[in-house]
Amino acid sequence: MTIFTGPPSSAIRNKPISEQLKRVLASAAQSAGIDTIIITSGGQDVLGDGPRRTGSTRHDRGRAADLQLVVRGTTLSFTNQSAPAAMLAFIEAAAAAGATGIGAGVDYMGPRTIHVGFGKSIDDHETLTWGANGSSRNAPQWLRDAAEAGWGAPTALAESDVVASDLAGAETPGRYAVIARTGLKLRGGPGPDFGSEKTLPLGTELTVTQFGGAWACVDVEGDGVLDGYVFASFLAPVVSDHAEGGVA
């Protein structure tokens, strides 16, 4: 069982992390063999509701944490070029379990601390990595690779935490596009236990015929034949380039 410590009472972001985030972190720690998670910066006052806050809204409501990982009494550390296998496994598992914002870098928060959490609001589902200066361009390659591997293979935990508002408007059948950076697995049924038929690349357009919980039944070929199921939170509605009402 993973031990959680922090955040320290003296930290600006000293509020507890959300239960959803704690489930994600605990699941990732179990997968990666992490013994202790030290939270150095946790939740903060919601913007407009209190003064104890800093930076962006990612930490509001405890939806993000800056943390360190401990294995057998040793706090893991990394460079901008490489990271320990246990840290890579943790990041991949956290992304697979539903974390969408992950940051790290020696020039960002030092060689031991990583940021793991969700978006800037409950409606922000963009998957993003970053490094120094909070810039995606500065994200270490090992961080990008580990996170994208996880986002490409979401786990049952990620699916169980998806609620209607998390589907970003994906409740109505119609045309959608894949927004997962590393592609989206097409499965034979609505769940990770079903085999993956293939991976649909980023930008693939398809027709959703029906939504069921966290999954969407899709027609990829556009011929009216059902091809399988995909994880719905990695779809976005396709916006037509043509306005209704005729050509001007």
Rank of each mutant, 00 (worst) to 15 (best):
S196D: 14
S196F: 09
D161Q: 15
A147C: 12
E148I: 11
A164M: 09
A153H: 12
A146R: 04
G152I: 06
I179K: 03
I179L: 05
E197T: 15
T172L: 12
R181M: 03
R175E: 09
A158C: 14
Y176K: 03
E197G: 06
A164K: 08
A156Q: 13
G174L: 07
A153E: 12
P190S: 12
P154Q: 11
R187H: 11
V163P: 00
G150F: 07
G183F: 10
S160I: 02
S196E: 15
Y176S: 03
G174Q: 01
T155F: 06
K185D: 05
P154C: 10
T172M: 08
G195R: 14
G189M: 13
E159W: 01
G174F: 07
W151Q: 07
A146W: 06
G188A: 15
D161A: 04
A149V: 00
A156Y: 06
K185A: 15
A146I: 08
T172D: 03
L167V: 04
A180E: 03
S165C: 01
E148H: 11
A158W: 03
T182N: 10
A180S: 12
G169I: 05
A146C: 10
E171K: 02
G183V: 09
S196Q: 14
W151S: 07
G183K: 09
P190D: 08
S196I: 15
G169V: 04
D161C: 02
R175M: 09
L143D: 06
L186I: 08
P154V: 05
V178P: 01
F194E: 11
E197M: 14
R144L: 10
E148Q: 13
F194H: 14
P190Q: 11
